[in-house]
Design a protein around this nucleic acid. Structure first.
Length: 430
DNA sequence: CCTCCACCGGAACGTGAGGAGT
DNA sequence: ACTCCTCACGTTCCGGTGGAGG
């Protein structure tokens, strides 16, 4: 496969390799690349398409601010790439402006909960609050829970006016009870409680809240539905108009990107990334237009990147399990299905070779299930009558690529010489 | 029709790491 | 420094499972 080298042949003119040549060619595709980057946030809410209903609803939920009242808490649901974060931040930006114009004091804090501990969330809110009040930047969140709580109370009392706290990816925190704690900590008799806007892609998030936490929160709920292919098409068109030079995109590029992204629950971010990558593929080839083949190639690159990331971050044991499947599917055994029994035997040999713990078969079946869920392998339960019940596994990702990625792990590197001859000898011993 | 293979997968339990509270 | 608690990761135990072969 040739997915990593996009240098097309047959254009070997005398200028190949000259940076000037590359520079000039490069300019022909993107007019403003930033617009199709995933991180791009439009300036105005009016730039957002197909989200009128939720924008409307969110605005309504926040209207209490006009009466100088703290709005009720809000939970925003929606899968990845449905525009939750962007819509929220733009609506709040507008709200802040309107509040300023009307002399209403309003503070908005943004905290992304991903990767934070429960206490970390409190700490981040704390720091954001301190920054708003004193303008001091604190880069540590390492206070104890109790100290964070005390500080939070202290600074919230100092705060003049309304407070809205946006908790993005709130499902990532381990203990949802923290929300209750936050409300308890921060609410005082002579002050209005803050408004929490909780953003999550987990539809069951509310169920995780304990009963009393749930009752504390008289919340509004807003659901962001996935985009369909047509809507993604519109979003892409709007951005592509500015992002690319005229006539760069072949007619079917956008519908194809939209269709590919819509297959996976209407993720607009994925679609945007695909357009970007397609442009880059065409750019590297030195082309002036983006065509279907570039999109397909870009899609493949994205997929390989995704798989690489997953495989790289697998625990060692899972890597060894995966490697034993690869071994069993390699030389001399093409077409033969791998059964869990065989696989477990090879796995044990590999562990022995690597000098690492050998897990029980029970545990390994769980690892196999996990690999299946990650989409790295396919497994089907087979009933072979007298010959028992077992799973047949096969790799659902590129063979050689995966092997290379696995061997990059220093703990598995010594498997490199564990090839056919050794393997065949070993296998004949079973 | 019954047996029995060779593993599946649920349940309960053990263990060590790490964080919170004192 | 200490206890307590939670959680991830593993193990042990054991009741299934569907069809080939007797």
């Amino acid at each position: 496969m040739d997915t990593y080298t996009h240098v097309s042949e047959g254009e070997g003119n005398q200028n190949t390799g000259s940076i000037k040549n590359k520079f000039n060619k490069k300019k022909k595709i993107f007019r403003n690349k930033a617009l199709v980057k995933v991180s791009y946030i439009p300036e105005k809410i009016s730039n957002i398409v197909h989200r009128d209903d939720v924008i409307d609803k969110l605005q309504d939920c926040l209207l209490d601010v006009s009466d100088n009242l703290s709005p009720n808490n809000i939970i925003i649901y929606g899968k990845m790439g449905t525009g939750k974060t962007v819509v929220t931040s733009l609506v709040l930006k507008d709200l802040q402006e309107v509040a300023n114009e009307n002399g209403i004091k309003l503070t908005i804090l943004n905290v992304n909960c991903e990767g934070l501990s429960d206490n970390g969330v409190l700490g981040m809110i704390n720091n954001a609050l301190i920054y708003e009040i004193d303008g001091k930047i604190k880069d540590t969140i390492g206070n104890s829970m109790s100290r964070n709580s005390i500080n939070l109370k202290k600074y919230y009392n100092k705060l003049d006016g309304l407070l809205i706290i946006v908790l993005d990816e709130i499902d990532k925190i381990k203990n949802p009870n923290i929300i209750n704690q936050l409300m308890r900590t921060i609410s005082t008799k002579n002050q209005q409680p803050p408004c929490l806007i909780m953003i999550t892609n987990n539809i069951n998030f509310k169920d995780y809240l304990a009963g009393h936490t749930k009752s504390v929160m008289a919340e509004n709920e807003i659901q962001f539905n996935p985009y369909d292919a047509e809507q993604i098409s519109d979003i892409l068109k709007a951005r592509a108009k500015e992002a690319f030079y005229p006539n760069v995109l072949a007619e079917m590029v956008i519908p194809l990107c939209a269709a590919l992204a819509a297959q996976e629950h209407g993720d607009a971010r994925k679609a945007m990334n695909l357009v970007l990558k397609s442009g880059e593929v065409a750019e590297i080839k030195g082309k002036e237009t983006i065509e279907e083949e570039d999109v397909r190639e870009a899609n493949e690159i994205i997929e390989i990147d995704r798989i690489t990331e997953i495989v790289k971050t697998l625990p060692t044991q899972s890597k060894v399990v995966l490697y034993s499947i690869i071994l069993l599917r390699s030389k001399g055994r093409e077409g033969k299905n791998v059964t869990t029994g065989e696989m477990y035997n090879v796995y044990r040999q590999l562990c022995h070779h690597l000098d690492i713990d050998i897990l029980t078969q029970r545990r390994v079946t769980d690892l196999v299930s996990e690999l299946d869920m990650l989409g790295l392998i396919n497994s089907i339960v087979m009933h072979k009558g007298r010959y028992g019940r077992m799973k047949e596994v096969s790799l659902s990702i590129p063979f050689e690529n995966t092997r290379k990625i696995l061997l990059e792990d220093y703990r598995l590197r010594s498997l490199e010489d564990f090839k056919a001859s050794v393997f065949n000898k070993m296998f004949s011993e079973f």
